[in-house]
Design a binder for these strands. Structure first.
Lengths: 218, 218
DNA sequence: TGCATCATTTATGAATACATCACGGAGGGA
DNA sequence: TCCCTCCGTGATGTATTCATAAATGATGCA
């Protein structure tokens, strides 16, 4: 039975709408548009948007509405730097606290990861990548780090989705991130060996690499 | 004139109510009680509570309400560990990016800090301590780190306010934190010398010290 | 023609009314 | 006496209505 509240449904559906590319940076997500679309009143929609703003996923102008933030090089540097801090610590904490079951699950994701790069579509890769990063955050057994990892991961997706088309002249072919699986593997190895410093180091290096690949194009 | 919304007023006033000790852990903050007390309808109160929950400052039970979280050793470890991560990075970033004006301002706070420990009341010390930590977060010039520092600082205040009376048999005299000013000074020195590694190290050490002083009583 | 002003439109912000759920206590039967 | 059920109470969750502010475009005057 569905016990989920309308606000939670709105929260998830709005995220899906954004992630499915229905909106672009600068687009306003209007309560009056979303409410009928999600078949509910403005109230839960408005509260869900408020959550997304509080979490830093959307920006807001008072009396105007919530909108997808414009990607900017300065904001990109800030969000990826912040990700390095929290995900690095999350990886270190995971190396100390992950259960064997969690490690097995992460290794399964890693395997799917390697297969996805070889063949599968961009969407499935993005999904597996998310599972890996959020799985490590959960394994850190720290609810605060986990929440921040989730929030910053989504926010940085703004750049993974939109930055190219805004700041690069040709919309270049989405190169399958060939180096990602080996970096994921290095993080995984450090966690399995219960080496927190190495796990943090590898995670920070991985995120830095993602950042440079994305924004600097190398 | 007042351009501030009712929701923002509710948000700030609720924080003040909590920080002024009107509630204890486990107490529910009822919309129906708060609304008349703040002289507004339930709507902005409810949204403000939602923000506080999203930020991790309050806990919530669906259909029951929001309440001050019970302090627990596990949660304390998590929040202070998370603070070490984000405030350490914030201090490092501040060492790189703080303007000279910000450094001067922080040094003024530090001076007031040293004077407060000698003489003044607990409240003023807490206020100055907050100014110092949040000032460094702002100087990091990273909106994400700053937001997380603010949230985790407040959340950890739960422990500074309530933990003793819950887990220590005698409500011991609040010892003025004698070592805090010297630790603040060490952080300040590293920032002034533009040494990010040292700033991060000192900040993490300072937070660890606060944690141990608070929970382990040494 | 250019610009300032005002009305209209359209969105959010807030208040109110209504629906739903959780808890607690009364009542009755084994 | 104990426990199970049911209903009353009181809180949040949601819908709806009303208030308010911001953008926009029309209008009139210099």
């Amino acid at each position: 039975m569905e016990k989920t509240s309308a606000e939670d449904r709105a929260y998830r559906e709005i995220i899906q709408l954004i992630l499915s590319g229905q909106f672009r940076p600068g687009d306003f997500l209007l309560e009056v548009d979303l409410a009928p679309r999600l078949d509910m009143s403005r109230t839960p929609v408005s509260r869900a948007l408020g959550r997304l703003v509080a979490e830093g996923f959307l920006n807001k102008m008072p009396k105007k509405g919530c909108y997808i933030p414009f990607p900017s090089p300065e904001d990109a540097e800030q969000i990826f730097f912040a990700r390095m801090a929290v995900e690095g610590q999350a990886a270190a904490s995971a190396a100390l606290k992950a259960t064997n079951q969690e490690i097995r699950k992460l290794k399964r994701i890693l395997k799917a990861d390697q297969e996805a790069v070889a063949s599968a579509s961009k969407e499935s890769f993005a999904q597996i990548n998310e599972q890996f990063h959020l799985g490590i955050a959960r394994a850190s057994r720290n609810v605060y780090l986990e929440k921040w990892v989730i929030n910053s991961f989504w926010r940085s997706n703004i750049y993974i989705f939109y930055f190219d088309s805004f700041y690069k002249t040709p919309v270049r072919e989405e190169v399958p991130p060939q180096r990602t699986p080996s970096q994921h593997a290095a993080i995984m190895k450090a966690i399995e060996e219960r080496n927190p410093e190495e796990a943090a180091l590898q995670m920070r290096e991985h995120i830095r690499n993602t950042y440079e690949l994305l924004l600097l194009g190398r």
